Simulated scan of single mutants.
Amino acid sequence: MSKNHSSRDSRNYGFGRKLYFAFTNGLRTHFGQGHFATVQAHSERCRLFCDWLLSSHQIADARLINQEVFFAYAAHVRGLLENGDISVSTATNRISSVNVVMKILRGDTKVYISKIGKVLGEKRCHIRTMAPQGMVFEQLDPLIEELIKTNFQRVAAIIMLTRTTGMRLRETILADLPRLKREALRLGEINIQDGCKGGRSGAFAPRWIPATDMVLLAIEFAISASPPGSRNLLSPTESYVEFLRGTVNASRNILKAHGLQRFHDLRAAYACSRYQTLTGIPAPVCVSDDESSILPKSCNREARQIVSRELGHERLEVTNAYLGKKT
């Protein structure tokens, strides 16, 4: 049974004596043992908030944080944005994380900023404006070859799976590779079930992806890179977090040297390629306004719905982040 942290009279609402520890403890308590990446992201942003609280207001107890203090922090973040020190996305995320942690610690939304864009004076744009990296398969070959030569075969497998199937990083690492191969050979499509975001998995949320020759090749390579005794890319004695912190993080310099800033761009590249396969025209983000073709709204929407389902999203609007503006 989890500890009750609801005491209003205790320092940091009972989550710990130190402010930053209380923030992190609150996040871990709320999200449980999972959601490592989410907890880590919120925690790092809240560290910046803690530093600001101590330096600007000498606040070391969450009970002293009121709406006025939070708005002052938002003004500080807006200043960083206006000076060009951070992006709109970064500014939005910093305030959003404080929203999350204060709601957890307090148990209410009395210290909360609902209209973040209005406070910042600028809204985050979710629609991609530049074509993603990795659109052309052949351009990834030098990266994959170097990863293999430097004993990062499993990271090379991640690259291939993400680009050919649109799976998230966690999904590629935890995918049941023998099952995917059986489905690809017998059905001509694969069902993404393992490591899905928000618990969407199995028969309750089927997510079928066409198993092209490139998909089958990526699965077979991943099986060859999989450690002995494993059905996925983790060794039997290795946790997902250990693999991320160790092998995956150690390979990031090689990825960046080849122009790939993040794995997520390959997921966007998959989305754009699938859109072109379905419609016969490039995704809007891949061409200029002068070159873009006019596609009937019904066809455009249908293609986006298919891509959205294959990516594992419930809302069609999210697909704009990968494909660009509507045509």
Rank of each mutant, 00 (worst) to 15 (best):
D289K: 13
K18D: 15
K115H: 09
E68L: 01
Y270Q: 03
T279A: 04
E122S: 13
C46G: 04
I144Q: 10
T319L: 03
S56R: 13
L266P: 00
S87Q: 12
H126W: 09
N151C: 11
L53M: 12
A157W: 07
G79Q: 09
A303C: 05
T247G: 03
G259F: 05
T279S: 09
L187Y: 12
D9V: 06
N151T: 11
V98Y: 00
K18S: 12
E238Q: 13
Q261E: 13
C50V: 12
S251P: 07
G16Q: 09
N99E: 01
I159S: 01
R168K: 06
D289E: 14
N253H: 14
G188N: 03
E220R: 14
T164W: 03
E145N: 13
Y20N: 11
Q276R: 15
E122Y: 10
R154K: 00
T172V: 08
A41M: 11
C196M: 10
R304G: 15
A175L: 10
L295F: 07
L255N: 04
L140C: 08
P142L: 06
E146P: 03
A269L: 05
H258R: 02
C50D: 13
H76K: 04
T237E: 13
H30Y: 11
T327V: 13
H57K: 11
A62H: 02
L19H: 02
H313M: 10
G324M: 07
